[in-house]
């Protein structure tokens, strides 16, 4: 990844998000609990808000 992208705060946030989601999905196998689904939802929702508004996602 070029450094201009690596330095981008939004890209950094997305990388963090993927690092969090990865283990949730891989540990769950074919079945995933509702609370884990809710966690993924909240994580992606916050980043999407940032993408749309450019704000802090809160």
């Amino acid at each position: 990844m070029p450094s201009r992208l690596r330095r981008n705060t939004l890209v950094t946030e997305i990388r963090d998000l993927l690092r969090k989601i990865g283990p949730i999905v891989s540990d769950s196998g074919d079945h995933i609990t509702p609370d884990k689904v809710a966690t993924i939802h909240e994580l992606t929702k916050a980043v999407n808000r940032r993408i749309v508004s450019g704000g802090d996602g809160t």
């Binding site: 998000l17 809710a38 993924i40 939802h41």
Partner: peptide, 9 residues
């Protein structure tokens, strides 16, 4: 990201 947000909801 948007797809995942919606689907998980």
């Amino acid at each position: 990201l948007r797809g995942t947000e919606v689907l998980t909801n």
